[in-house]
Design a protein around this nucleic acid. Sequence first.
DNA 1: CGAGAACATCGACACGCTGTCGACAACGGG
DNA 2: CCCGTTGTCGACAGCGTGTCGATGTTCTCG
Lengths: 226, 226
Amino acid sequence: MTPMPLHQPPGAERAAPRTPRGRRAPRPSGDDRQLAILATAERLLEGRQFHTISIDELARGAGISRPTFYFYFASKEAVLLALLDRVAEEAGRAAGEALLGLAEDPPARWRGALAAFYDIFRAHRAVVLAVVEAGASAGGAEVRGLWASVLGGWIAHTARAIEAERERGAAPPGPPAHELAAALNSMNERVFYSSFADDGLVPRGTDVVEVTLHVWLTAIYGTAGS
Amino acid sequence: MTPMPLHQPPGAERAAPRTPRGRRAPRPSGDDRQLAILATAERLLEGRQFHTISIDELARGAGISRPTFYFYFASKEAVLLALLDRVAEEAGRAAGEALLGLAEDPPARWRGALAAFYDIFRAHRAVVLAVVEAGASAGGAEVRGLWASVLGGWIAHTARAIEAERERGAAPPGPPAHELAAALNSMNERVFYSSFADDGLVPRGTDVVEVTLHVWLTAIYGTAGS
DNA sequence: CGAGAACATCGACACGCTGTCGACAACGGG
DNA sequence: CCCGTTGTCGACAGCGTGTCGATGTTCTCG
């Protein structure tokens, strides 16, 4: 038991909905605790850095003791991984949809995709900030890995779109599409991040979507297009 | 002498060069130790992550005990700060020179500036990787701050260059120069970093200077320019 | 040249956090 | 009604950090 691929340990796919009727259960069930930990983490993350949150706080916040925390998650990072899963899936889907029918109105579609990313990440910026922070340090290998695969997937998607634009003659030849896609996405990751972290690199009040969009359009089409 | 604002505590600005003649000093002097710590840090950083290096190792590597380490530096991060100071100054100077006479041959000058950054950071990639890692976690506030001011300085420099190009009519109007400069520099920071970290985002073998240069030129001038 | 100041060094301790072990409570089915 | 699964926690061992106080070393100046 406890095969636990990575994050999301046991109790994650426990079977039946043991009778929630009648007076409330004397002891909250495992699933509740699992969710309570996740909720506590997201709540604490709103106002503090990931590394300042101890496992004990997460546990206490969910009404359990520290050792018990380990029954649900293997580490603090595992909790973050679970949180990231949701956000990544949401963002990927939204941005993917935005690019459908690119040929009809490129500037508008690209803007839609960038905006989708921005909006969703912004809505969960506490998680995004924590992922970057955790990924860069200690037990962050897995966090970094998941993040890299998410971003990598989106880069591949972008690369295909660029190639399609070139093939239909809408965009001129240029650097290898995949490399260009990696550079552009890297820019957005960093700029959006700076914007959320408010670290002073991007001038306050900057419309980061518009600025990055300008760069994307000129880099892909050679003109500001509009 | 060695004004050194924050990190680099006491013993940093000791006066005279007490006679090094005669038989070798029984005890290495403070400055030697200071340097020994820096050297040890750079050496260890070549093969390991910043967070896996303990203060004890740094101390032992310099031939002193852990408590004594604190006589020279306030923390692990302070050591990194000292290392970063050097690299940042070197890179800033080199890239600044590369941009002189921009009007004569824009593409070549910009390429020179980006290449200067790339080369110098690459030569000290262990330090760069450590800075990003340390900046994102624990006592990284100061590291992050120094890094931000370095990058911020370069962004301002870039912004002025873009404005000059627009004024002399070489570049068309576009997004606010400072915002554009921030986005472009953010891209380079991230792409160069990925390249050094070999995290799989940027395809192996990519000529990151050429790719990012393409983006810079099209974003600033509206064409790939050659 | 000899004493005190400044420099340098380290043993030992107090902490805070992580991860694990073993014991034990609660509950649902045979 | 007994037992295995699910949950829970006290207590311990380990590791790294930062500090304090005692002590050795070197410089300076009267």
